[in-house]
């Protein structure tokens, strides 16, 4: 849950003060480079438990090796595939349940408390149970990712549909719209921005849950499994490589999705101005 909608760089740099933006940006590089050099120096002097630090040369070797062998790509593809499946399944289930809870008071009252009880348990806390039930294969992993994607979507769909302007719905009723058309063209459209926020959260949660499950199950392929294998083998270069790619992919997913949403919701800006 460490990355979120308001991705960072936009916050900095925008208030460059007296310094030129370029100089400002260079300052941001000082600390990472200093840390890398310190890291490299510690590795050369064999500080720590021997395998805690690796030299930059070792890291780049590991990187080149993982790319050349295709392992890195295979692991990334495996993880992204899980996230995609989890998002589709969790998305459909989440939007369906959120809609049912928002539109029917009975469903809300019967399923709501159950939903909120289950929500209290951290997603990864289900792993020992699912491991017992379904073993260590692909299915329990997909189940966890689906669950992670589903829950934020239930909440945002519910909130979105509940907060539709009543006036809009009444206009629809006056026009004696078919309930289905009313739902599809009025309610769902009004709830779309909120649901898209939910999708954005679902994307982040699914990625985190996917990495988490792969690490905790420690089996199969995937970028999390790669990190966990690296840890068991005491191979810091592999672990670091995995961590860097987890961050890069998280950033890429969030950025791509934000671009997509901004494009999809352009109609809203003009409507608000009117």
């Amino acid at each position: 849950m460490s990355f979120s909608a308001q991705a960072g760089p936009a916050l900095s740099g925008s208030h460059a003060g007296f310094a030129t933006p370029r100089l400002h940006r260079l300052k941001g590089l000082v600390l990472p480079i200093a840390l890398l050099l310190l890291w490299d120096m510690l590795a050369r002097r064999h500080v720590g438990q021997g395998f805690a630090f690796v030299t930059l040369a070792q890291l780049s070797d590991a990187f080149a090796g993982a790319i050349a062998s295709g392992d890195l790509l295979a692991n990334i593809v495996a993880s992204l595939r899980r996230v995609a499946i989890g998002l589709v399944c969790g998305g459909v289930l989440g939007i369906a349940l959120g809609t049912a809870m928002a539109l029917s008071r009975t469903v809300d009252r019967v399923v709501g408390p159950l939903f909120h009880s289950i929500r209290q348990v951290p997603t990864l806390g289900w792993i020992p149970l699912l491991g017992l039930w379904f073993g260590y294969g692909e299915f329990p992993k997909l189940l966890i990712v689906t669950k992670a994607a589903m829950f934020p979507l239930v909440l945002s769909t519910y909130e979105g549909l509940r907060n539709v302007r009543q006036a809009d719905v009444e206009v629809g009723r006056v026009l004696t719209l078919d309930p289905w058309v009313l739902f599809w063209r009025v309610r769902l459209r009004a709830a779309a921005p909120m649901i898209l926020t939910g999708v954005q959260q679902a994307l982040a949660f699914a990625w985190i849950a996917c990495i988490g499950t792969e690490i905790l199950f420690g089996s199969g392929i995937g970028i999390g499994a790669m990190i966990e294998t690296g840890q068991v083998e005491g191979n810091m270069a592999t672990v670091l490589l995995g961590v860097i790619f987890v961050g890069l992919i998280a950033f890429a997913l969030t950025t791509a999705f934000n671009r997509f949403t901004a494009r999809q919701l352009r109609w809203r800006d003009t409507e608000d101005r009117a």
């Binding site: 990355f3 990495i211 987890v246």
Partner: peptide, 8 residues
Amino acid sequence: VRQVPTIA
């Protein structure tokens, strides 16, 4: 660093 989830 914020991009990387704690679990990783």
